[in-house]
């Protein structure tokens, strides 16, 4: 079955990321497919390239990157993202900011990518803040 997942919570502010990631890994174990993981509201902060994980605690960014390495698309709402400081190099240049902040391999996308992923998928599941 094909799933689209949405992450609404910021790192450390909720279990949104942990729930979404563990669920995604279980999906892949059972040979389901993930159409897209969409980061919305404060969930866009998951895509920041700059956090330093406290020693001995989980490194969320590294875990997202590991999930992506299994072929999962990590898509960040561009409207929610840029106003919260999540900037790709392209957006950095457009708004003339000094540094970009979007981690590889996240991409900034429009809300249309949420709706089309919902349309493509058999299931849509939200992990709220």
């Amino acid at each position: 079955m094909k799933y689209t997942l949405a992450i609404h919570g910021a790192p450390y502010a909720s279990q949104s990321a942990q729930h979404g990631m563990a669920f995604a890994e279980a999906l892949l174990r059972q040979a389901h497919t993930i159409e897209r993981i969409f980061f919305f509201h404060e969930g866009v902060l998951q895509a920041l390239s700059t956090p330093v994980a406290p020693q001995g605690e989980e490194d969320l960014l590294q875990k997202w990157q590991a999930l992506s390495a299994q072929g999962v698309e990590l898509a960040v709402c561009i409207a929610s993202g840029i106003k919260r400081g999540v900037l790709s190099e392209e957006e950095r240049a457009r708004y003339e900011k000094t540094s970009n902040s979007l981690a590889e391999p996240f991409t900034l996308v429009g809300l249309g990518q949420l709706i089309s992923a919902i349309n493509e998928a058999d299931r849509y599941i939200e992990f709220p803040a």
């Binding site: 079955m1 799933y3 669920f23 279980a26 059972q30 389901h32």
Partner: peptide, 10 residues
Amino acid sequence: NYDTFVALTA
């Protein structure tokens, strides 16, 4: 567990 969670969503 998460595997059953997935199964229920399917």
